[in-house]
Write a protein that binds this DNA or RNA. Structure first.
Lengths: 211, 211
DNA sequence: CCGCTTGTTGACTTCAACGTATACATATGC
DNA sequence: GCATATGTATACGTTGAAGTCAACAAGCGG
């Protein structure tokens, strides 16, 4: 059980050290969230002292924000196109972001969303995707409350599907996106009616806005 | 914006006060989790002083455990039968528990599961349901990693579906259980293959172990 | 070799939250 | 009415984590 030691020899150039701290902190925060994670824990995980943390970040909050910003930027990069719909590209983008930084992905969607101080920053994504989902779903589901239910649920399922896929060891990466999308489709199907056949759903599937 | 005041007049019999504290604390903890929720916050929300909290619970941890135990007991009550499978009864039980105490439900499955100190107590449920799900799913999904993925995901989707349903105002309660089940079914379908038709899935649906 | 930067160590301050203690007020039951 | 249990108010003690400071060590570029 040797601690992770990214550097048996010590000195690193500033930028690189900063990246390393961000990575370590992301892992640490992803385990227990902001409040329950100590700076010493982070420092140890990064193989340095708490004092050094403060030569790179003004405060714990500051560090956390940096991590969140970074992850949001990653998402933005992968969803660069107008997030106009819950399209195939969205799923792909989410997946790529998750593969790039699994811990960051978990941190954002399992912890940060539930931390009142920080959730606002992420709310934007959720709101956009949910709104897009609502547009698509309300076309198929007449009942408004039901449509809102499905619209709330769809993005969550996409995200949880991705996280579970990460946990399972990223099996069959080529078809992962398709499976995630199908899981979402299945969920939407549940809102349409409990009696209707799943096959109806395929017509509700998404290709983005037509022309 | 008057604060919630469950008791403008004050004195309550001990047992009743205790219940009220538990309820208030559940709400408070459900918002931000254990570490980020202060006792003063809870006391205020319960309409009393922090001192009174200590006449009912030895410590913050103690209080939290009581809440968790209580919610676990509720779940046990509703899933009393052997949780032998991811059956219709399981979904119903979850739903009823969630309706009884939405905040408790959220607390358990959105916060407590990610708090290393406490997750063990809940892990039992998750493990049981996941194992049951795995049994059913592995019968339909040959690839082991894929089956594990779906088995992890299925309970999460059930829970998130229920939470989203609560958030949407519990629309169409009569069919809620059926919809949740169908959402789960849809997810499982995603693991079977991305090309196969959903209808196959119905054979994978569950009635409990065959005689 | 000199100076800057990166790093360590250890002691220190601050502060918020947990937890305790004491004195006082007032309902309720006997 | 009096004892008991519930409740308030306020102050205090304790602890752990955030954040700071100063002295020292050692790599690396000029």
């Amino acid at each position: 059980m040797a601690d992770e030691k990214p550097e048996p020899g010590r000195r690193l150039p500033r930028a690189q050290r900063r990246e390393q701290i961000l990575a370590a902190a992301t892992e640490a925060f992803a385990r227990s969230g902001f409040a329950a994670t100590g700076l010493d824990e982070i420092a140890t995980e990064a193989g340095i002292t708490r004092v050094i943390l403060y030569r790179h970040f003004d405060s714990k909050t500051n560090l956390y924000q940096a991590i969140l910003d970074r992850m949001c930027a990653r998402l933005d990069a992968h969803l660069e196109e107008p997030v106009g719909g819950f399209t195939d590209a969205s799923t792909d983008g989410l997946l790529r972001a998750a593969v790039e930084s699994p811990a960051g992905f978990r941190l954002l969607f399992q912890h940060a969303v539930r931390e009142p101080e920080f959730k606002e920053r992420i709310e934007k994504f959720r709101a956009d995707i949910t709104a897009a989902a609502y547009l698509q779903i309300s076309a198929v589901v007449p009942d408004e409350a039901l449509a809102r239910w499905a619209a709330q649920l769809a993005p969550v399922v996409a995200i949880e599907a991705i996280i579970a896929w990460l946990d399972a060891g990223q099996p069959d990466p080529a078809r992962a996106a398709a499976r995630v999308r199908q899981a979402v489709t299945g969920v939407i199907g549940a809102a349409v009616s409990s009696d209707v056949d799943c096959t109806l759903l395929h017509s509700a599937n998404v290709e983005g806005p037509p022309s």
